[in-house]
């Protein structure tokens, strides 16, 4: 690093620290996506128990669920509906709401992993189905049990790669 104090203009999209609202107007109950990830994790365990075409078919169903979440947000998936109808009525109101974008990004990551697994499986690379299911199971169970935020871990890497490619 030759001259650390560079003369580049100040970065444009600078946000000041003070009045960032803790709750987005589009906020969703953060327990919903975590509950949904739990359901997905159970389905992925079943994929690993099944063999042959049945496993591929169930992984395709899971990919379709991820596609719904990617298109509409994690709160409007089938799992999200189950949470709202059957679980949330029994819970206290959430302590805080969550922006809908991070869980939606996680749905996209799930769609890519499951989608690649299904496509490779259909192309005859049968081992890709359990491998993709195992990867997605790690992500889904981390999300469900520990609240892992995939967007936090992957988004910067994606942005760095994209800008290098550009």
């Amino acid at each position: 690093m030759s001259d650390p104090i560079s003369s580049t203009p100040p970065p444009s999209a600078l946000r000041q620290s003070s009045p960032l609202p803790p709750v987005s107007p589009l906020g969703i109950d953060p327990r919903g996506p975590r509950f949904g990830a739990g359901i997905t994790a159970v389905l992925l365990v079943v994929v690993l128990l099944l063999s042959g075409g049945a496993g591929t078919a169930l992984l395709a169903v899971i990919a379709a669920l991820f596609a719904v979440g990617t298109a509409r947000g994690a709160q409007r998936t089938v799992q999200g509906l189950i949470f709202r109808r059957l679980v949330r009525p029994h819970l206290a109101p959430p302590a805080e709401l969550e922006d809908a974008r991070p869980p939606r990004f996680a749905q996209l990551v799930g769609l890519i992993i499951a989608g690649v697994g299904v496509l490779l499986g259909l192309a005859g690379v049968t081992v890709a189905v359990p491998v993709a299911a195992a990867l997605a199971l790690v992500a889904a169970s981390l999300n469900s049990a520990f609240g892992l935020c995939l967007g936090c871990e992957l988004y910067v890497l994606g942005a760095r790669l994209r800008s290098r490619a550009a």
Binding site: T8, P10, P11, P102, C149, G151, Y155
Partner: peptide
């Protein structure tokens, strides 16, 4: 750079936080 962020740094310390839109924490 001292002027690089477009805002003054703290006279003792500054927390410079890198955030993204897909990040709840």
């Amino acid at each position: 750079g001292v002027a690089e962020l477009g805002v003054a740094l703290g006279s003792d310390l500054t927390f410079l936080q890198f955030s993204s839109e897909v990040c709840t924490p």
